[in-house]
Write a protein that binds this DNA or RNA. Structure first.
Lengths: 235, 235
DNA sequence: CGGACGATTGATTATAGTCAAGTACTGTGG
DNA sequence: CCACAGTACTTGACTATAATCAATCGTCCG
């Protein structure tokens, strides 16, 4: 069964944790990982307030993380695609502050955090890689901060599309045609927009020839104009 | 000179890095720290694209971090008060992606990162604390994400004020009366608002008896209503 | 003292949200 | 296989919130 594959044989090893570990030490990492946990669409990987035990590498499918405000409204805080690490919130509190839910049928590799810490002490490159992963997460949050605080709804959607495209490419897939794993509602929530706005912008981007979109299938037709200036002030 | 004080004698040791280190090992941490770097108002601690060499503990004063978008507009990404660690972006890229600038006369302790990594391998609690610090930064970014994506201008300002108040308290200062180290422009920029909006809300909050404000001096008069529901729909 | 910057206030406008309605999908059970 | 329910998505009309434009005042420095 594919889920039992070792890191050695995993197609994602070049973008996942193993990239930080010498082949000679990969066995050590391999041994602490619990592989192939399967999640059905809508199932939770963990919930807010669950005790923090592990971080998870997405092997297939996609997840979203979200938090609840006091008044019960959901805030989607991130989307996680294969090769990406989810669950790094919670280290400081020892319990998760957000929930992680499968957007579609998914499998994850579970990496118990105390083991990972122990191993990181012994493998400097792993420690560095983990610092690095968290640092990148902070960087991405800063980019999102700018997106939400300075950019128009159009820019936000364009940025989401190109970001997803880039992450697809990282896994060796097309950066032009892909399927969004999340609903319009999740997109709207994540980007701080109303669903209706998201829908309208998808439609307009298509009319402007920037993308072709059919449900969750997206094709990027004019990347320069989508990313850049072209779209600003009447595209 | 106060700046030459060791971590042992530093009044901030209970909220800064030393809290993670046994007294017996504090010397080791102490030795790698370059203390008392002074910054005048407006001076940079580092700039975007500078090579990443160290993280910094704020000893006195206050700093802001900011990034520039391609089109040259500034995005304030954070404010850093005494006892807080600045500069953890940049680990993954080996160069800083944002700039850090003193909002007022400040001093910082410089902690060379490669030394910190080495030491972290030997002191598990320090490694854990550092993971923890980064995790908390991620948590705070998530809270900010919700603030920017779901909350009104009023909520954003209220949240900033109470957050600053809490951080003051952490250092043993009043959580009721304090001086904002940053300009209205920085506040507006950070919260994704126009300066005019910030100004108007400060004025209105004062008229509503929630705060007393005079320039950068702020007194919180009615915390419950400021934080909570009271303000919603006509306070 | 003057200039620049920071802050405030007012008038107007633009962007995205809300409300409302309706269509298209998806999966389920008959 | 189809009917149905429920959800996801789209579109239109109207509205509210905060942005922009503009003017003024205060104050900190050089």
């Amino acid at each position: 069964m594919a889920a039992r594959v070792s890191c050695n044989d995993c197609s994602l090893s070049q973008i996942c944790l193993p990239l930080a570990v010498e082949p000679a030490q990969l066995d050590e990492l391999d041994r602490i990982i619990r592989r192939g946990r399967a999640l059905k669409r809508g199932e939770h990987l963990y919930r807010a307030a669950d005790s923090f035990e592990a971080v998870y590498a997405v092997r297939s499918g996609a997840l979203k993380t979200y938090a609840m405000s006091e008044d019960g409204e959901e805030q989607v805080t991130g989307f996680y695609l294969p090769g990406e690490i989810v669950g790094m919130d919670g280290i400081s509190t020892a319990y998760h502050i957000s929930s992680a839910k499968a957007l579609e049928t998914s499998t994850v590799c579970e990496i118990p955090f105390t083991h990972l810490e122990t191993l990181s002490s012994r493998i400097p490159s792993l420690q560095h890689h983990f610092f690095s992963l968290m640092s990148r997460e902070i960087q991405e949050d800063r980019a999102l901060h700018m997106l939400l605080s300075k950019k128009s709804a159009d820019d936000r959607i364009a940025s989401l599309l190109t970001t997803i495209a880039a992450r697809q490419q990282r896994r060796g897939l097309s950066n032009r045609i892909f399927r969004l794993p999340m609903s319009r509602y999740d997109i709207a929530n994540y980007l701080g927009l109303a669903v209706e706005t998201v829908s309208r912008i998808f439609t307009r981007f298509q009319q402007q020839g920037l993308i072709r979109v059919e449900g969750r299938e997206v094709e990027i037709l004019d990347r320069p104009r989508l990313c850049g200036e072209g779209r600003l002030h009447a595209g």
